[in-house]
Write a protein that binds this DNA or RNA. Structure first.
Length: 323
DNA sequence: CATACAACCCGCCAAA
DNA sequence: GTTTTGGCGGGTTGTA
């Protein structure tokens, strides 16, 4: 009992530190400052963090910097490796280049030129992400006339055959939420269980009213981040008075412009829906992905729909900015 | 939880 | 000119 209670407090503190890392990549992220964020002594924090996450603090910081850089390398318009290195917190391009190669098995420029596909294939072949991103890049190169000529993977074709995605651009406000984090592969693995646990907790707290929106937040790009490190947060809107409780933390979902489409499915088909939105709608939309986090927005009642039909209806919301 | 030490990695200069 | 690699000293990290 005591052990699980203290484990829960460790979880929220580690979550807070990881959130801090990804939000402050360009700032100093040494052991002392991060231990301070966690309210632990540096020595104890180091032990706790490694024990619970499987990676040391320095490894975690380095990985987040590299993953952010990997995204920026594929962004438009292209920026120099030096600029990207500094943006994500490396002090010099030499260290960036060396460290990048050690992690991704290729140099930054090779990644940009196409080596990302091999990485994605190696680590997440089941998601077929390469084709999606390739569609996007091919389109950007070849121009509008080929916008609709996407080679379809077997996963995609089920959703694209004779079907046009209805997408609207919404401006969402910043939202304070309580969340339960699942760390592990996206898809039908730990996430459904996390939702069970979370909705039970919400029910017990009387939070599951029709007025409250629930959210699913995937912080990581599964074509870049290893499945074992992908973060997914089950979230529900809360007011300013709500405080963290057990392993339920509090964070703010970023506001801004999102491309939103209504989708009915379940945890096995969400990935394909995301691919359709990014790989098919996005390239011909006049918008591009913004450097923010994609959201799943669940209207109240999705849980009961799921228990009766095996599916649920929700909004996919991808952060966008004009081309 | 503090100290202490070895290994590793960062940060810098040079150069391909 | 930019990026990557090599070499190296000093500082941080990881662990006893």
């Amino acid at each position: 009992m005591l052990a699980s209670a203290s484990r829960a407090t460790y979880v929220v503190r580690i979550n807070r530190v990881v959130n801090y890392i990804s939000a402050h990549l360009a700032d100093p992220l040494d052991l002392d400052t991060l231990a301070d964020v966690a309210h632990f002594s540096p020595w104890h924090f180091h032990r706790v963090f490694q024990g619970m996450t499987g990676e040391t603090l320095a490894d975690c910081v380095r990985r987040h910097r590299l993953e952010a850089a990997a995204k920026l390398l594929l962004a438009q318009p292209p920026q120099t490796a030096l600029h990207i290195a500094l943006t994500v917190g490396f002090a010099s391009p030499e260290v960036f280049s060396r460290t990048f190669k050690a992690h991704f098995d290729c140099t930054p420029t090779a990644w940009r030129a196409g080596a990302w596909a091999a990485w994605a294939e190696k680590h997440n072949a089941h998601l077929h992400p390469n084709q999606v991103r390739k569609n996007y890049q091919d389109h950007r190169k070849e121009g509008q006339e080929n916008a609709l000529h996407f080679r379809q993977t077997s996963v995609l074709s089920h959703f694209t055959e004779g079907h046009t995605m209805q997408v609207e651009i919404k401006t969402l406000p910043a939202t304070r939420v309580a969340y339960l984090r699942n760390i592990g592969a996206y898809g039908n693995h730990g996430i459904p269980k996390a939702w069970d646990k979370f909705t039970q907790w919400c029910g017990a707290r009387g939070l599951m009213t029709p007025a409250r929106t629930m959210w699913g937040v995937g912080h990581d790009d599964p074509t870049i981040t290893a499945p074992a490190h992908c973060r997914y947060d089950c979230c529900i809107e809360v007011d300013d008075q709500f405080l963290p409780e057990g392993e339920i933390g509090v964070q703010t979902i970023a506001g801004g412009q999102y491309a939103c489409t209504l989708f009915t499915g379940n945890s096995s088909t969400i990935a394909a829906a995301w691919m359709q939105l990014f790989g098919q709608w996005m390239p011909s939309s006049g918008y591009q992905p913004a450097n923010s986090i994609s959201l799943e927005m669940y209207p109240a009642g999705f849980a009961s729909e799921f228990s009766s039909t095996g599916n649920f209806t929700f909004w996919l919301c991808a952060p966008v900015k004009p081309l």
